[in-house]
Nucleic acid binder design. Structure first.
Lengths: 120, 120
DNA sequence: ATCAACCTTAGAGCATACTCTAAGGTTGTT
DNA sequence: AACAACCTTAGAGTATGCTCTAAGGTTGAT
């Protein structure tokens, strides 16, 4: 599919998709059979990646962290051992985020009780 | 205390503290008794706020969201009802973040199993 | 009185992650 | 052929959240 279709299917603007491409998160390919244009084509895997990228962004991972995750998953840049190390590191980061969020929830709940009982 | 002491106690740079002050998250006061300078003074509550700000930032709240939280907590800008609405909204946002993080954890764990079992 | 170590404001600079514009080429329909 | 609706690259612009610099004033120890 071309970028416009990818954009519609993923819900991500073509501009942002191009930005992700420049950032190395996704990659289009050119069809050798076509010589009249230089349009990029994208496959289902790219759509999958974009969904993963959206989820990863929403939990607060940066572009370069997501790039690492993608390399650990889709590329052969790393050995099995290195891949596992990266994935474990990200799991640890998520565990930390869970802790912080639970703590913040507690804090806000305390705030709420104080407001309810007119202590502020 | 003056800004330097506040910075040391909070672990936040004076530049960032000034930025937070400009953003309306904290507020220093001037001592009327002192006329030879225009130094700002900060109290323990400001230190407390800075700690809260750091925690709120780490869970992904933006400056303006934190400003809302602070207003719901420290100011009389809002009615009791409004304060509770703001706090509930933030609790809901945190609940959503928890869900997203748990989902991402699951995804990465699946990735990990695939790597472990040489499925990629 | 001089010096380091503070303080102030105003504004410039930077990293991240988009978001948009310009200028030009292609495709498909009428 | 002409038109809308695509495609490309290069680069400018924007929002957020800092981070730093400049220029000038104050404080406190020697």
């Amino acid at each position: 599919m071309l970028i416009n279709e990818l954009s519609k299917k993923s819900g991500i603007s073509t501009h942002t998709i191009r930005f992700y491409e420049k950032s190395g998160l996704i990659k289009g390919y050119r069809k050798e059979s076509v010589t009249s244009n230089n349009y990029y084509h994208f496959d289902e895997e790219t759509l999958e990646r974009l969904e993963m990228i959206s989820e990863a962004k929403s939990v607060g991972f940066t572009i370069s962290e997501i790039a690492q995750l993608i390399d650990a998953w889709y590329s052969n840049k790393f050995s099995k051992k290195q891949k596992l190390a990266i994935l474990d590191e990200k799991l640890l980061a998520l565990e930390q985020k869970l802790k912080e969020i639970r703590q913040m929830k507690k804090l806000i709940t305390e705030f709420k009780n104080d407001v309810l009982e007119d202590r502020c």
